[in-house]
Design a protein around this nucleic acid. Structure first.
Lengths: 217, 217
DNA sequence: ATATTTTTTTAGTTTTGTCTAAATTTTTAT
DNA sequence: ATAAAAATTTAGACAAAACTAAAAAAATAT
């Protein structure tokens, strides 16, 4: 599989997680930063190779084979992210672009040895699950911070948006995976929240709270 | 720089180490496994971008800029080889192909952090020197085992041929970097040698001895 | 010194992945 | 129900990197 084919497959995988119907060419184009016409071409090729099912105007669906392949790419991406953070001391907002390249290295032996070296982690530095060598994903029970009730506490277990601007904001507020967060108050006008983290109370917008995953205690 | 341009640049670098004149298109074609005509095309492109100096029929020479770029690719290749052997427990005959892919990952930060993580190694698992971040190479004093005199001993510090068949042969004979080797006898007819390694005496062909570097004690 | 061989370059194709512009289908809105 | 808008596909073109076959230059051998 080529570099480009892998990127399309990964994009289709990510998009198909949040919908059950076929993934639209436009959505894919937006993710891989190409044009819809290019996507149509590529998708036909992927369909010929049986990574996806494709019907004109009906969007794209992964085949079993395609799903597994996509998961293996995600596995590689996330394992490399763990490596970069845990071993090379990158911060969580710096790892995405490099992992985007590393995920294309073709060696099953490499990735399985890396997995072992890292101690078989089940989550990447943003709290996203790492598929195991068979493609199995252990689902993490989590909810958005914005859905937590007043007075309740949760442990930060992941982010929905992993853009570096968001991650850097969290760093500034000293919110990291594992941080305990308590909902102190909610402002009904704009749904902003007062939360307690690290013995400090801070005010956050609803947008922030809608991009933070917590596990309620 | 593209993947392909990097491969050509690296090939030109390796070839220019063993000669002072321009590197021939045919020699490059053999190393990158392409045809001479393809090399001509690529070399023109590299010359336009000032990585090499090229004159029709006169071969190719690296510019200063090209030399540094080539050294950085070699640096990445060899650091990844160290990583694979030291951290992921690959054997020295397995690392080349994977490193061949890893060397193209584009991140100076990554490679410098990897360098630090590995403790700034100066040699790869085959005894080849690793250029530092400025491209400086500390030359290792070494000679071919075939050039060592009878009765003298040396420490194995590198291999000239790093094909997996040769490396696996060395493993079988329990010869590794750091092994002490003593020349017991030489057969003048075919230049084969009797050597002492690990308290055992073994017979090796001249071809073997001509591909093993030692540092004489 | 010239003929032959070898090496290198040129010219013309091919494949992959992309694009734009135009055509077509589907969706949405009245 | 039909018109307008949006999404998707098709057609045709382009750049990168490779190839084959033919032409040209350099090296070699008699």
């Amino acid at each position: 599989m080529t570099y480009s084919e892998e990127n399309y497959l990964k994009a289709i995988y990510h998009l198909s997680l949040s919908q059950k119907q076929g993934v639209s060419t436009n959505a894919i184009a937006a993710l891989v930063e190409s044009k819809a016409s290019s996507v149509t071409d590529m998708v036909k090729k992927l369909a010929e190779k049986e990574w996806v099912k494709y019907q004109k105007y009906q969007g794209v669906l992964l085949t079993d084979k395609g799903l597994l392949a996509a998961k293996m790419i995600v596995r590689k991406h996330r394992l490399w992210e763990v490596f970069l953070v845990e071993k090379l001391d990158f911060s969580w907002d710096e790892v995405h672009d490099v992992a985007e390249e590393l995920e294309h290295i073709q060696s099953e032996k490499l990735i399985n040895k890396l997995d072992a070296f890292l101690g078989f982690p089940t989550e990447d530095p943003h709290g996203d699950p790492i598929p195991d060598k068979n493609g199995n994903i252990t689902k993490i029970e989590k909810q958005l911070l914005s859905e937590l009730e007043i007075g309740k506490s949760g442990i930060c277990v992941g982010v929905k948006d992993s853009s570096s601007s968001f991650l850097q904001y969290l760093d500034k507020q000293q919110i990291a995976l594992g941080s305990e967060i308590k909902i102190v108050a909610k402002e009904s006008f704009d749904n902003s929240l007062t939360i307690a983290v690290n013995t400090k109370e801070i005010l956050i917008s609803n947008k922030i709270a809608s991009n933070l995953f917590v596990k309620s205690k």
